[in-house]
Amino acid sequence: MRNTDKNPFGAYIREKRESFRKTDRSFSLRQVAQRIGVEPSYLSKVERGENAPLSEEKILLLALELDEDQDVLLALCGKIGKDVQEVIRKRPLLFAQLIRDLKNLPDHAVLRIIREVRDGKW
């Protein structure tokens, strides 16, 4: 099995960081780790897929560093953003059912889900 299969998040951020580093040396492991507030050795473990979890706050900082979508990086870590959790928590039955109903729809169909303006009696 490839490393990306076992460790999609670590492999992804390493590849992204390394691609930036080719043209900008401030994307070294040490400097990126410093900017997001972790030890370089810890970020190295994250990239190698060793047992080194990152908090949501650190993942969001990393997403900013690497110009990545925050939700995508969170999902690669098996996490969901706090704001999304809050949306679901407010109406758990409705959103759980909605997500299940949508799981097999192609992207273009999901993007076309719209909310109609309700017309009443007048």
């Binding site: 909310r115 303006v117 309700r118 017309d119 009443g120 007048w122």
Partner: peptide, 20 residues
């Protein structure tokens, strides 16, 4: 804005008509 999103703060006549 949708009337339904703020239904509890709007008059009954607005809720009945729906709309925005």
């Amino acid at each position: 804005r949708h009337v339904d999103d703020f239904a509890e703060k709007l008059p009954e006549s607005w809720r009945e008509r729906g709309g925005v």
